[in-house]
Amino acid sequence: MSKSLQAGRRAGKGQSRHYLLRLFIAGNGQNSQTALANLRGLCREYLNGRCTIETIDVVKDFEAAVRDNILVTPALILVDPRPRVMVLGNLSDLPKVLAALRLSGTES
């Protein structure tokens, strides 16, 4: 518990950290397209582009879905910085996504 709190604080402070985000989508579905657009917007506005978005289409690469146990799409995994976090859905609820990625409070 305290470990993750510490990690969270560090991530909040270290505004120059680079983010690795893995987004699982399924083909060209509406939710997938929305999620990708939302994530790109978030990267631009809240991370000043300090992020890499790794997009995996589970329809094309089911082994990748098996590896990360991705049963629903879209699904976003914050790979780095640690700890790992997963957010499900098309990411349309921005405040929720920011909170999950420990980016709340950095938008001001």
Binding site: V59, L91, S92, K96
Partner: peptide, 25 residues
């Protein structure tokens, strides 16, 4: 083994394409 997400954060709509992809594979 389709262990569904439990405590994960949810933001917006999602569907079971991931599972279908795995099962389909």
């Amino acid at each position: 083994e389709a262990r569904l997400p439990g405590e994960e954060v949810r933001s917006g709509d999602f569907d079971i394409q991931g599972m279908l992809a795995i099962v389909g594979g």
